[in-house]
Amino acid sequence: MRNNKKILSVLANIDVFVAGTALAILVVLTFLGVVWRRVIGAPFTWLEEVQLACMLWIVFAAAGAAFRFGNHVAIEMVVDLMPKKLQKVFTVFISVVVVAVISYLFKQSIGFIELFIKSGRSTPMLGIPYKFIYGIAPVSYLLMIINYFYALFKGVKSEAKEAVESE
């Protein structure tokens, strides 16, 4: 029972675990890079490409979670001045915009990745295929939409949630 709960919680936060792992790898490799360059005198020639890949994965893996935990910023001041009823209308409007923009990004990102699938291009030193590095982006766009609505209905301190709650 307890184990099940734990597994569920891990599954629900898998995006955070992936991003957190990328962060941990980034920190450790950057540190080891310093050690190898200074102490051993043999800099990691592949460090930059791994660092950039980690950065990309941190940003995109956590982008959905950032909705869940209310990290995405918005300028609330204008909408907050409006009557409550109108604010509700705007919640719908904002949701439509969010879905529209992210869907468009999703569609274009698929095309972007096909580019790398077609060319089979990979990073210069380690030969990591770019399709894997950039592949996180479309996944991330899907997670953004899911998490946006999760935050809207289940409630966390997201911008959209505040609009609903402020009645």
Partner: peptide, 16 residues
Amino acid sequence: QIQTLGFNALGAAATG
């Protein structure tokens, strides 16, 4: 890769 291994061949430690 080319420039990294090129400078390593000269005995230096190429740093990206």
